[in-house]
Amino acid sequence: MSVDNVTPGEMMTIAASRALSNDDVCFVGIGAPSAACNVARLTHAPDITLIYESGTIGTAPDVLPLSIGDGELCETALTTVSVPEMFRYWLQGGRITIGFLGAAQIDRFGNINTTVIGDYARPTVRLPGGGGAPEIASASREVFVTMAQSKRGMVERIDFFTSFGHGEGGDHRRRLGLQTKGPTLLVTDLAIWKPDPETKAFTVVSLHPGVTRQAVQETCGWPVRFADDLDETPPPSDVELETLRALKARTEAAHAGRAGGGTRKGPNDG
């Protein structure tokens, strides 16, 4: 497959999907994480367990859900449990290997803000809030994040700590009594990032095909560190790209198939 045909968004989804394995039990955030998780399930990880916070365990949707509680998720799930059971037994109980989150705002230590832009009491923009994220970030054995790069999204200092990543870096998680690993992977539309073993600051370990260091820095609000042995992300295979595009096409068709006017968008964080 020619790299020229691949959009940055497709590269992001496919690179993120590769990080998941067949044995993972993954708590899926809506939007970009949902696409990556389902591409993994439809390619190299057919037995992965995908869990959405609405209580659907082992779901296998044919199209991407618009919300975490679409009927498709329940109809294709192994079982559907109540919301308290979801958060108490399955998340707090330590059953989740990967919490896969999106982010409105992230800092270099993987701390995420989806609560407010500006001051909490007098916000410039009131965002939806954390939902399940604060405990997904603390109770999942590790956390993957995927988001498109922008200076507005990747910032020096987040306005609110909705979900705790590595805090101020170093051993901050341990000092708070958090036994889980926290963010171990950030996949953007331009690169793959992993935390430095000591400082825990995200470091670029792989550039997607055709992406320059300059492009990564221009869309990131903190001074970017690049690994000494910087890799290039393998381009999407034919199977990966065809799987993603077919999934998107089925999703568009399904969500456009109902009565009513208005412009339609694809799945979005919400």
Partner: peptide, 12 residues
């Protein structure tokens, strides 16, 4: 429950 560790909501 085991929650809110490091989360900003606990402060507001």
């Amino acid at each position: 429950f085991r929650g809110y560790r490091g989360a900003g909501l606990a402060a507001v």
